[in-house]
Computed example of a mutant assay.
Amino acid sequence: MNILFIGDIFGSAGRKIVAAHIGHVRKTHAVDLTVINAENAAGGFGLTPGIADDLFQLGADVLTTGNHVWDKKELIDYLNSVPADSQEHARRILRPVNYYPGVPGHGVFQGVTTGGVSYAVVNLMGKVFMSGTEDPFRAVDNVLKGISAKVILVDFHAEATSEKVAMGWHLDGRVTAVLGTHTHIPTADERILHRGTAYQTDVGMSGPYDSVIGVETEMVLHRFMTGMPGKFEAARGNPKMCAALIGCDPQTGRASSIQRIMLGE
């Protein structure tokens, strides 16, 4: 079984580069499950229902998010529009499972591929240098108790490299893959851990690389050099799609391979 995970889509440049490549990548690698982190897809900050539907049309099975999930207010009602057991698009958009109780949406989706393989996707967020979350280690332990599928992908949206690496070891042998998002810089540490979990600290951004993690360079430099606030805008130059391709045994969920992908224009 092959799983394609596409890293944080940032703005229109990210959407366009993903649209240009996702089809042939899925076909070439006979992808069975496609997951995309889309929390920055709308202008670099947040996600709208319309953009989410476009990504589903491109072939996404599940969309994950992170700390920018609430940036577009129209998504809140959309996440609350379907019951927990629905298979509709709105239910396939996840927010971090370890957000405090009572927030809209869900942090886990369990489904079945067109080939009949049960799977689960867990959206988890780090606590180091981030706010608004409960302990991700205990949260994911509790979540796994309710998942029967063997194929389990975890999007760990976190800032600290150490926290991401720790989560990889914490879940080794219990999930198929732990893939980091949020920092927008792809790391060259993809590997299969000792007990069969695929791991990468950060898959990287699908968006404009002539930028500062997606934002127009001069705007970020101005803030660093003056300390003055200013509105950030998504850049467009040198777009690339960053992703990870994971091969696994659908019967055991054990990963057999992980490959970094970076594709440009």
Rank of each mutant, 00 (worst) to 15 (best):
G102N: 11
G23Y: 08
Q57M: 12
A52E: 01
L79D: 01
N80K: 09
T64W: 07
K127Q: 14
V112N: 12
P96A: 11
R26Y: 05
H29N: 14
L33R: 07
H106W: 14
P83Q: 08
P49L: 02
S86F: 08
S81M: 00
Y99D: 05
G46L: 01
V112T: 15
A38F: 06
F109G: 02
D77C: 00
H89I: 01
V121G: 11
A120R: 07
H24M: 02
L79G: 03
T48N: 07
G66F: 10
E74S: 15
L94N: 05
K27Q: 14
T28W: 03
R26V: 11
W70C: 02
G102V: 09
Q57N: 13
N98G: 09
N40K: 12
H106V: 12
Q87E: 11
I76S: 04
E39R: 13
V62S: 02
G102Q: 12
L75N: 03
V31Y: 07
P83W: 07
G115F: 11
G105Y: 09
I93K: 06
A60V: 03
A90T: 00
V108L: 13
L58W: 12
Q87K: 15
N40L: 07
H106Q: 14
A42C: 09
G107F: 07
A41L: 05
T114F: 10
P104I: 06
L47I: 06
